[in-house]
Design a protein around this nucleic acid. Structure first.
Length: 284
DNA sequence: ACCCACCCCTGGGCGC
DNA sequence: TGCGCCCAGGGGTGGG
């Protein structure tokens, strides 16, 4: 379940592993992996051959690799995607979808994705922000993130606060895990109507989101199994620090009340019924 | 303009 | 032991 910290760890690995290198061959092994490239797999590979990767960037949960052509390889890991930089002789992973080899003959870039919610595309606008990412908001640890604008937009919404946190056009990088963690830390219930959130509460929420994201980043991301790994295949350690997510029935780390788990948007929310009481007027 | 339900996908875990 | 169901969930899309 890669969210901002996991994607940032992968980005750093890609920066180390592929920036400055020139693509020699590109293979699409599963067409669904490039479904966001409307012109199809052949066009995808055509746009890559002979191109040099100049950097590795991220917006929210999206990654992109700017190319010397002005395009960029845009990637999203979805639920189970991995971007790995591995020796060419390493046997193909079971869910290998795309592989890129480089002219220097060194380690190759592999996109591996079990559930194929993720994917790659080549898009224009790579030098600044690839066009398909224009609607994605800045993330809350970006220096240019504007707290006042976020708060105003949040309070103008008519939805629940957790839904708003998961809306990548309002604030990016936060998924189900870190939304629950941040709400727990800020002592806010996810069904709290956004239009009733006070400015101090919004500030508290933002501070909590940032604290959770930064702590996870320091731990190398959250991992529950072998699915999420860095570009070098290393797993994160933040799972043992979680306060809400996945802790149903276990004591709240603040008040010892058992953490509750409730259905939310075809998934689930974990929260402390004492620290985060459900509002009378709730918007789930 | 905004909100939300739906759908895409596969393997692990669990109940029977 | 084996089968089948449920769950994990990000984000694009289309309808309201």
């Amino acid at each position: 379940m890669p969210e901002l910290p996991e994607v940032e760890v992968v980005r750093r690995g890609l920066e180390r592993g592929v920036a400055g290198r020139t693509i020699a061959t590109a293979q699409v092994l599963h067409p669904r992996a490039v479904r966001r490239h409307p012109a199809g797999p052949q066009d995808f590979t055509d746009l890559l051959l002979g191109r040099t990767v100049t950097a590795a960037r991220r917006r929210g949960k999206y990654l992109w690799l700017p190319l010397d052509s002005g395009d960029a390889i845009v990637g999203h890991l979805g639920m189970s995607g991995q971007l790995l930089v591995v020796p060419v002789e390493k046997p193909a992973e079971p869910h290998l979808r795309v592989r890129l080899a480089f002219t220097d003959g060194g380690r190759e870039l592999r996109f591996v994705d079990q559930r194929t919610f993720g994917g790659l595309a080549v898009a224009a606008g790579g030098a600044v922000l690839p066009h398909p990412l224009a609607h994605i908001a800045l993330d809350p640890i970006d220096p240019d993130f504007d707290d006042a604008t976020f708060t105003a937009r949040l309070r103008a919404r008519k939805t629940g606060i957790k839904r708003a946190l998961l809306d990548q056009t309002l604030v990016s990088g936060v998924g189900n895990i870190y939304a629950d963690e941040a709400l727990w830390r800020a002592r806010l219930h996810g069904a709290r109507p956004t239009e009733t959130v006070t400015r101090p509460e919004a500030a508290r929420l933002l501070a909590a989101v940032r604290a959770v994201l930064r702590a996870s980043l320091e731990a190398g991301g959250t991992s529950f199994d072998a699915l999420y790994v860095s570009a070098e295949g290393v797993s994160g350690l933040f799972a043992r620090e979680l306060d809400a997510y996945g802790r149903e029935g276990e004591p709240c780390h603040r008040c010892a009340t058992p953490i509750r788990r409730t259905a939310f948007m075809n998934r689930s929310s974990s929260w402390c019924p004492r620290c985060q009481p459900r509002p009378r007027r709730a918007r789930d």
